[in-house]
């Protein structure tokens, strides 16, 4: 194995965490990680050694997620919202290990954010990337990233406050 493979293996826990933050179900997150790995292997010639593999892989994951979200939007016109809601609730319950109530509330609140804000929050708050790195992954100017982050956070604090969770 070589450095690329090693780094990609070591990146798996972070890729999965990012996927779980942007997807609404654990099964979707697993699919997203798997597709990201496949695409990273197929496109490895496009990775420039010496640059950050994490940013590169996150960018691949973000693109796949956006494609899925578009396809999902088309589906949601034919799937009744009630069905979708039931499926989500069941899955969330299953994936909620032993987190504290406030962490669980935040997890749900993050998953309810609009896509753009959720990605910004996942990259900066959950993964800890810098604004510049997160903006590059999202393919937007730094100012756009910052405003998504501000709005996302304001919304999270409001949501948690409304639920009586102090954050």
């Amino acid at each position: 194995m070589d450095g690329f493979q090693r780094e990609l293996v070591e990146l798996l826990p972070r890729l999965r965490r990012f996927a779980r933050a942007v997807c609404r179900s654990d099964a979707d997150a697993q699919d997203l990680v798997q597709e990201t790995v496949e695409r990273a292997l197929a496109r490895r010639a496009g990775f420039r050694p010496g640059t950050r593999l994490d940013s590169w892989a996150f960018t691949i994951m973000r693109r796949i997620h956006i494609d899925h979200a578009r396809a999902g939007a088309r589906w949601s016109r034919v799937v009744t919202p009630a069905d979708e809601r039931t499926a989500e609730v069941a899955d969330v319950g299953q994936a909620d290990e032993d987190l504290r109530a406030d962490a669980l509330a935040l997890r749900r609140a993050i998953r309810d954010l609009p896509d753009d804000q959720r990605l910004a929050v996942a990259l900066v708050l959950v993964d800890g990337l810098s604004y510049a790195e997160a903006a590059a992954v999202m393919g937007v100017p730094p100012g756009t990233l910052t405003s998504r982050l501000v709005r996302g956070r304001q919304s999270l604090i409001r949501t948690l406050a409304a639920q009586g969770v102090s954050a």
Binding site: P13, R17, R20, L106, I110, V121, L125, V126, R153
Partner: peptide
């Protein structure tokens, strides 16, 4: 606290 809680909500655990 929100930042700390966000990391707690999505831990990077081995799967």
């Amino acid at each position: 606290r929100l930042r700390g809680l966000a990391r707690e909500a999505f831990p990077a655990t081995a799967d």
